[in-house]
Every structure is written in C-alpha cells, then in structure tokens.
C-alpha cells in the first residue's frame, strides 16, 4: 500500500513506472544473442556454400536473399512470430526480421485485395527501412563527392 507520497496527476507517471513489472533484461538479452547469432551463423553457412560457385560478393547477397526467403515462408506458416515472442531484437535486427516485416502486413491485409491490401500495405512496417536507407545512401554518397573523398 502506498503511504509515503500522495499520488497526484503530476507524479502519476513516476508512480506507475515504479509499480510496473519489468521485462527480464538478462533473459531478453540472452535470447537475442543466441537467436541473432544463430541466424547469422546460418547465413555464414549459406555464404560458404554459395562461394563454391559464385564470387564472394555474390555469395553474400545470395545468402541474405536465401534468409529472406526462408523467413518469408516461416512467416507464412505462422512460425516466425513465435520466435519473435522470445527472441525480440534477435529476430528483428537480422535481415530475416526485415522479411517478416514485409510479409506479415502483406498476409494480414490480403483481405482488402491485392492492389490496396497487399500492394499498398506491404511496406507498412518495413517501408521506413527502405525510405531511410535509400535517402541516407544518396546523402552519404553526395557528401563524399562534395568532400572529394571519392
């Protein structure tokens, strides 16, 4: 029971913050590390495999693309979000998380049709990644040109 301070509108946020159950930081970090590391190690496996036939750079791109495809299929089967429930950033930050972010809205909004549903909503979550990524790549390249680094 709260006796020391009166709860008011002003201090309510602090009061709630202190009362809130906290996420278990160590557990979250442990699973993020294990799952994230495993996805990257699997990616490394594909790189090793593809570099038998392709150049290093192509092998790397193909490996990432394979991971994207696998994550898309896992999303379709409703498995990827189960991993995300405990892995958190471990399944969000790898490229597979990007794939999940593209596929899950596509799947969800299919009921609104292929044009306005799948087509328009596909980048609901992942859109910011493409938009910001392309913008920053152009800016960085222009800055480097202006500075004469290139």
């Amino acid at each position: 029971m709260q006796t020391e301070h009166k709860i008011t509108k002003q201090n309510y946020k602090d009061y709630v913050f202190n009362k809130m159950p906290k996420s278990s930081h160590w557990k979250n970090m442990f699973w993020a590390f294990i799952v994230g590391g495993t996805i990257c190690a699997i990616g490394q496996g594909f790189i090793e495999l593809y570099s038998i036939w392709f150049s290093d750079q192509d092998a790397s791109i193909l490996a990432s693309s394979t991971l994207v495809l696998i994550a898309a299929i896992m999303t379709g089967f409703g498995v990827y979000d189960q991993i995300g429930r405990f892995a958190g950033a471990g399944s969000t930050i790898p490229i597979t998380g990007f794939s999940n972010a593209v596929v899950s809205p596509a799947l969800e909004f299919r009921t609104e049709g292929y044009i306005y549903g799948v087509g328009a909503k596909m980048f609901l979550v992942a859109g910011p990644v493409i938009v910001n990524g392309v913008t920053i790549s152009v800016i960085v390249a222009l800055i480097c040109m202006v500075l004469g680094v290139l």
Binding site: N28, Y80, D81, G84, R85, A89, S104, L107, V125
Partner: peptide, 8 residues
C-alpha cells in the same frame, strides 16, 4: 501489429 509480425 499484423498478426504474423514477430515482436517481443
């Protein structure tokens, strides 16, 4: 979020 999006 969409149902299939993996979030903690």
């Amino acid at each position: 979020y969409p149902l299939e999006l993996g979030v903690l």
